[in-house]
Design a protein around this nucleic acid. Structure first.
Lengths: 357, 357
DNA sequence: CTGAAAGCGCTTACAG
DNA sequence: CTGAAAGCGCTTACAG
């Protein structure tokens, strides 16, 4: 009970959580009868400590409730114990789930998560990230689509020696930096499902062509359809912006004429909600007269009526993996490619039906 | 150009962003010909510096691109430059908007935002927050509903001397700690709107009674209705859980019998989406046969069809204010009550109609 | 396997 | 208004 002795407090029994000054590495070293360097070695899990010394000191640290000061460590390490999450404005649920996943990974590691949203269309955004990383001397950064697809950003991080992990629909980098989500597999599954229901006249509402995920989802869908013997004409592919409003516009286009498709696959759920709006407003029954599939399996999907079938990505897992790659300096090498892959799958609800005869 | 001289680099012109070692307070002091304490005073905006000294040093800092090291400051201050956001799992959009607001407030302040979701139902959660605050020596914490309503949590923070700000529907604390959202005003506005459309047989789906916001929204609605001459019978008030599923259950209850209400006000949009599902499934037309109003004005509101009228809270502003209260040590006192208030308002869309004759 | 010295880049008393 | 000394709580070389 060093803290109490220090304070010279009398018999008066201390409450459980005395707001007494926290123990330092010096207290532990003195009490354990070792040098502070030895304590430091134990904190940092160095193998160069005798087993019994280690156990004795660890027991003491537990007893005293000692936790090393992150600021002091950061100053001495010349690097903070902070992980940055850098992202450009995808949907809220996506961001929050990634945050949960990242926190799963760093729990009890002594690291904390600092959020850094940014606007990748603004000219100074890469400099903004650079300042963030350098001033905070970040331990590492997680890059979320779409910034994860920006090679200029990654080049900057490499130049300043900042470790990073990237979440993207396809491998853009060394396996040691990537969490690959294989979006094309999910899109293919959606295509196969529509084919199995008997659809032939199918349409596709894509995200913006500047997103890598758009390309993956589109080609995954088109290729799977082709394999099933259905060719998608250009007029059935409409580029939109991953937003609700752009989904409305795309649907107005696709559902206007006499010969409308019997099924529409959308690059995300937001746009699918836009398709719902146009269809319901026009009195087109989902799923009887029109089948719809989304991508993301956001909360929105199950809240729409009828509930939207959608391709789900394990977002929290993606966040956990991306953060954990920043913890282990090198572990991510041999088995990396497999371990850092994640796979989408179609969640079937009530928005698809065989086409009417 | 001290960095270049230090490196003794020859004529070779340095690129704009030489990855040379960053300047320290010692470099600035030496180059400016003052003591490091004077530089420190300038960093910390002390008035005890002569104007011309200040200007000279500031110009130099700008020229060299000097930024004080947050870790070193934190260690010397015995307090980090981190603000924690503590919350218990409300909706993703709410969290993300609060994060944006908080970042608006701390931009260029040298502070960073660290997220800390927690589970207020788990027994050790207060200890978890305590460890987070103490280990990181946080500059302050923002408390979001529902944890902001937990007096035991606030007592712990007071005990360990951690500054905090609370976002809540009603003043639970000194004005210097509060961002008050006045939820009852928004609920009253919803009631007045329904009355103005001619509704008499109205129902209410509330959140869990353990939430303060539930009480505020409920009594705000009920009181405004009473003022308009409409008394809400107990059978027309159904307690649910702020979730989609609980909204479905509440709506099944309310819409089952012959004499169903002509309008339903829901404590949040999630539950309103549940009401939509039940009504649409049962062939009850919204808004012709049933008017619905939500609360939160989440993205979901405009994505439903017909678009849901909902009470909007300026969430990003709330985040900004809550964070800025942690910056100014004392400023929040006199004019505090007014400045730290925020007011909801009803966003009218397509989900309400006069009742059928 | 262990330790004494110096240092990370700031700020807090304490003097002037 | 300004400064020299000591210290925040750790880690990195460097020795043994």
């Amino acid at each position: 009970m060093p803290a109490r002795t220090t304070h010279g407090r009398p018999a008066n029994p201390a409450p459980v959580s005395t707001p007494t000054k926290a123990a330092t590495i010096n207290d532990i070293a003195r009490l354990a009868g070792v040098s502070k360097k030895t304590v430091s070695r134990i904190i940092n899990r160095s193998p160069l400590v005798r087993q019994d010394t280690r156990e004795k000191v660890e027991a003491l640290m537990r007893e005293v409730g000692y936790v090393p000061d992150p600021m002091a460590r950061a100053l001495a390490f010349r690097r903070s114990l902070l992980i940055g999450m850098v992202y450009d404005n995808p949907t809220a649920q996506y961001i929050v789930n990634l945050q949960y996943g990242a926190l799963d990974a760093i729990r009890d590691s002594g690291l904390e998560l600092v959020v850094h949203p940014c606007d990748s269309r603004s000219p100074g955004y890469i400099d903004g990230v650079r300042r963030f990383v350098q001033q905070q001397k970040l331990h590492g950064v997680m890059l979320i689509p779409r910034v994860s697809e920006d090679q200029a950003l990654v080049d900057m991080l490499t130049e300043i020696g900042c470790r990073y992990s990237r979440i993207a629909s396809v491998a853009l980098d060394d396996a040691s930096h990537m969490v690959v989500t294989h979006d094309r597999e999910g899109a293919a599954e959606a295509a196969d499902y529509l084919l199995s229901l008997g659809h032939h006249d199918i349409a596709l509402v894509t995200g913006p062509s500047s997103y890598r995920s758009t390309h993956e989802r589109t080609s995954g869908f088109v290729d799977a359809l082709a394999k099933g013997g259905v060719t998608l004409p250009q007029a059935r592919i409409v580029e939109a912006g991953y937003t609700f409003e752009s989904g409305v516009a795309a649907a107005e286009n696709l559902l206007a004429g006499n010969r409308r498709p019997t099924a529409i696959f959308c690059g995300n759920d937001e746009m699918a909600a836009g398709v719902y709006k146009v269809a319901l407003r026009a009195g087109i029954a989902i799923p009887q007269q029109l089948s719809v599939i989304g991508f993301d399996d956001s909360p929105l999907a199950s809240r729409l009526w009828p509930a939207l079938s959608s391709v789900r990505l394990p977002i929290r897992d993606m966040g956990r993996i991306a953060a954990s790659m920043l913890l282990q300096p090198d572990a991510a090498s041999a088995s990396a490619l497999a371990a850092n892959s994640v796979h989408p799958h179609l969640v079937i609800r009530d928005s698809c039906h065989p086409p009417q005869q």
